[in-house]
Design a protein around this nucleic acid. Structure first.
Length: 148
DNA sequence: GCCAACGTTGGC
DNA sequence: GCCAACGTTGGC
């Protein structure tokens, strides 16, 4: 899951109550569908810092709730406000994410250097999705290298 | 700040 | 339903 560290960094998430933050602001249908349909409480999350000086995996987290409507879509003062969404027909769903660990920064070049990750969605050319699935093999590879 | 890549919008 | 125009993402 990508987060801009200027918005919510791994440190911010770890400092939050119960180390848990609601994953607000996703306004892409594919990314929403991953949260709404594919995630289960307890699933592992790679916490990725994007749009910053050093993009890369900065920590580990886990899915901490079932999906529920993103409250920012109803808030006219929020930058994530969606006038087409109503409380009876929410358009954007999210999950809570509990940060479990700050890791060393595993940078994009390092990720690209690992052949086991050559098919990883987040590394594909032109990828803009803020949430992408990780295969068990990719997960194992990354955890192993994070410990080095 | 640039720009490639991609998603969304809206007229037809 | 097509597709051009436009907006956004995100690495560099």
């Amino acid at each position: 899951m990508k987060s801009e560290p200027d918005e919510v960094s791994i440190d911010d998430a770890l400092a939050a109550p119960d180390q848990t933050v609601p994953w607000t602001g996703v306004r892409n249908y594919q990314a929403r569908n991953f949260m709404r349909d594919a995630m289960r409480v307890g699933d592992g999350v790679l916490f990725y810092h994007s749009s910053c000086a050093e993009p890369g995996i900065a920590g580990l987290a886990e899915v901490a709730s079932t999906p529920y409507p993103d409250p920012t879509q109803f808030d006219p003062t929020s930058r994530y406000y969606d006038p087409k969404a109503g409380r009876e027909n929410p358009r954007w769903m999210l999950v809570d994410v509990r940060a479990t660990e700050k890791t060393r920064l595993m940078t994009l070049p390092e990720l690209r250097d690992l052949p086991e990750l050559s098919d990883m969605l987040i590394l594909k050319r032109g990828n803009r999705l803020s949430i992408t699935p990780v295969t068990p093999g990719e997960w194992r590879c990354i955890i192993t290298h994070l410990r080095k």
